[in-house]
Design a protein around this nucleic acid. Structure first.
Length: 118
DNA sequence: CCAGTGACTATAC
DNA sequence: TGTATAGCCACTG
């Protein structure tokens, strides 16, 4: 079976542990798509009704820019929603950004291999 | 083929 | 921290 780039991206995003975050570039790398940070953002935007009632729930809110900033304009609907979801997971968001030093996901080999069983 | 665009990044100041 | 600039890649017209 052929796995599309966006499937890899979604699968990778879903491996981010609760309470942690990752950057677009980081997801691209882990998904085997180095240099495709923008593609990650694009695919997250193509998510099938991230609302309810979806087989696949993608934790898109755990993906930030390389500097920990939310990818949306502060005060925008999307940004506010993302901030809310993050705070549900005890991730502090201050001034539309997160302290990567404290929350950035640092994947371990065993963890990655376990996630590859999809 | 070229130019513009975008949930991006790295570097320099 | 913030802004500016230049790459980046996939897509579109």
């Amino acid at each position: 079976m052929t796995i599309s780039a966006q499937d890899k991206i979604w699968a990778t995003v879903n491996m981010i542990p609760v309470g942690n975050v990752a950057s677009y570039g980081q997801i691209a790398d882990l998904a085997g798509l180095p240099g495709r940070a923008r593609l990650v953002g694009k695919c997250l935007g193509q998510l099938p009704t991230n609302n309810d009632n979806s087989d696949m729930q993608v934790a898109w809110h755990r993906v930030l820019r390389a500097n920990g900033q939310i990818a949306f304009a502060a005060e925008s609907e999307q940004a506010l929603k993302q901030i809310g979801l993050l705070q549900e997971e005890n991730v502090a968001v201050f001034n539309n950004r997160v302290k990567l030093a404290q929350y950035q996901w640092q994947p371990e080999l065993a963890e990655l291999l376990f996630g590859l069983k999809y």
